[in-house]
Amino acid sequence: MKAFQVNWLRTLCLVLVFISVSGVAAFAAADEHIYDGANLLSESEIVDLEAVATKYSQEQNVDFLFLTTADENMPPITDYMGDFFEQWSIENNQENVVLLTMNIATRDVYLAGFGTAETTLDNKRVELVLDRIVPEMQNGDYADAFRETVTTSSRYMEYRPGVNPENILLKSWFQLLVALLLGAGVVGFMLYNAGGRVTTTASTYFDGDHTRVTSARDHFRNKTVSRRKVPKNNSGGGGGFGGGGTTGGGTSFSGGGRKF
């Protein structure tokens, strides 16, 4: 009987280990996340970005990939990006991907979300990420832009789909400010009511029985007219493109692109 219990415990432990390993293997981040065909990054930057991409890929169950090129004769960046994704997805058996594609020759950048990332990183959130990384790309800080893409996209994906992650109501500092203001208001109200009440009013010293208005007169003094010129809106477009679509292989994606 004792031997049976020992064997049963060993079997149970093996099953638990198998389940744990299987759970980890259910999503295994790709071995390579940086495909720097344009040679924009140093070896140390690639090593650092690979570590960051692997960490957040495992946390979000979405692979963060970066693809760069310097081909002036390249087809539209969305087509190039779509062809790369279709091939990569088959080779790695993974459809949940956030893919940043950049052509340094044409100064185009496109950020796309595939699989679950199509919802968690929708078109509006893609534009918010681009707002952050395009200035860094314009300054040539490509490694910082790539790192910002991973961290910001990952943070946005923590919010419920459809919620604007940059809404001021969701900011910790704003919530703290509101709490402080409410607290100050409550304390002020309590202090105001802690003192004695003022019972003297204007009617206290006014004798209505022996006071009356003998006459009333309106006198027009002057008239002032102010004019304000309404400026015309002469601003042009923002130069963005994209907004999601479908790859040549039929895979839909969210996305957005810009010139930098």
Rank of each mutant, 00 (worst) to 15 (best):
D207N: 14
D207M: 13
D207T: 11
D209T: 08
H210Y: 07
H210Q: 02
H210A: 04
H210T: 04
H210C: 05
T211E: 06
R212T: 01
R212W: 13
R212H: 05
T214R: 05
T214V: 13
T214Y: 06
T214E: 03
T214M: 08
S215K: 03
S215H: 01
A216F: 14
A216I: 13
R217T: 13
D218V: 12
H219C: 01
R221I: 15
R221C: 11
R221H: 07
N222S: 15
K223Q: 04
T224Y: 15
T224K: 15
S226V: 12
S226F: 10
S226K: 09
R227L: 11
R228G: 01
K229L: 12
K229Y: 10
K229F: 12
V230Q: 09
V230D: 02
K232L: 10
K232P: 00
K232W: 08
K232T: 08
K232S: 05
K232G: 07
N233Y: 13
S235C: 03
S235T: 07
G236D: 02
G237M: 12
G238M: 08
G239N: 00
G240E: 12
G240I: 14
F241Y: 09
F241I: 02
F241K: 00
G242Q: 07
G242F: 15
G243P: 02
G244Q: 01
G244K: 03
G245M: 08
T246D: 00
T246Q: 03
T247C: 04
T247L: 12
G249M: 06
G249D: 03
G250F: 15
G250P: 05
G250I: 11
G250Q: 10
S252V: 10
S252L: 13
F253R: 08
